[in-house]
Amino acid sequence: MAKKLRYALYTGCTAKESTPELLKSTLAVAEKLGIELDIIEEASCCGASHLQDFDDHLSLVLNARNLCYAESREAPMVTLCNTCQLNVSMTKNRLDFDNKLKDRVNQDLSEVGLEYKGVSDVKHFLYAILEDYGLENLKKKIVKPLKNFNVAPFYGCHNIRPSSLHGKNNGGENPYVPNSLDQLIEACGGKPVDYEEKNKCCGFHADLQAPETANKLSGNALTGAVDADADFMVTPCPLCHLNLDVKQKKAGEAVGREVNIPVLHLPQVIGLALGIEPEKLGLNHHVVKAVYF
């Protein structure tokens, strides 16, 4: 690598609350790889596609404001959550292609002394590692390859669909046959397993109002991974993680199966392969414990 990678880190809410292990492991991995992450502490929630159902304009201004703080750091924004990635990049896309809308949003932002310019890119940590850091560079740092582990990648919707939005920041991932996580698992020495649900939905966004739907979708994903002989799953999205880990028992029941499979966050898998101690990666926070490590 020519120069040190530096990003403005948009943590999102979940990494600061119900999946603290995600933030912990991300910071540990970044430190080990020499990637500088400057946390945007001024940021607010992205609205998670729910505020967007209520108030489109407010969600645009809030996300534009979040982007302003990446711009003032003169760095691309990196996200840890698929849904943050979706909402921030959807905002960016709409403002960058509609000057009238951008002016209207900037009019509100000017009340707090900010201006959205559109100069910071936004990408998920998965693709920052893959596209910017590079798999070959990562491979050189692997000291504890995840040998003998079958790993089920679970991509999560909002990093891969719609490809017309994400294409330029996710290496042109094919939403029907995604393979970035597969490649990453391989780079970390594990064996990626293939199963039908790897690019399907976990149902998170209907958890409260339609738990049966959400549990069945998560249950299908979990049993798909188990039947493909996976030792554990890995996901780049903390919302998928909540459904697959915290709600695993209910999800299994919804499809009539008893399931017991650990689900790891993407940086935890990288961290383990880099030789970082499991405690530093927050594996103790999981409901279904990853007993192998």
């Binding site: 809410c13 979940t14 998670a48 505020l51 209520f54 809030l62 409260l208």
Partner: peptide
Amino acid sequence: SNVATRHAVGFKHSIEQHGFLDE
């Protein structure tokens, strides 16, 4: 007013109070 509509509106209240969500 039901669990779904309050969930959508609740994001606004949470953001107003904390910036981040109070999950």
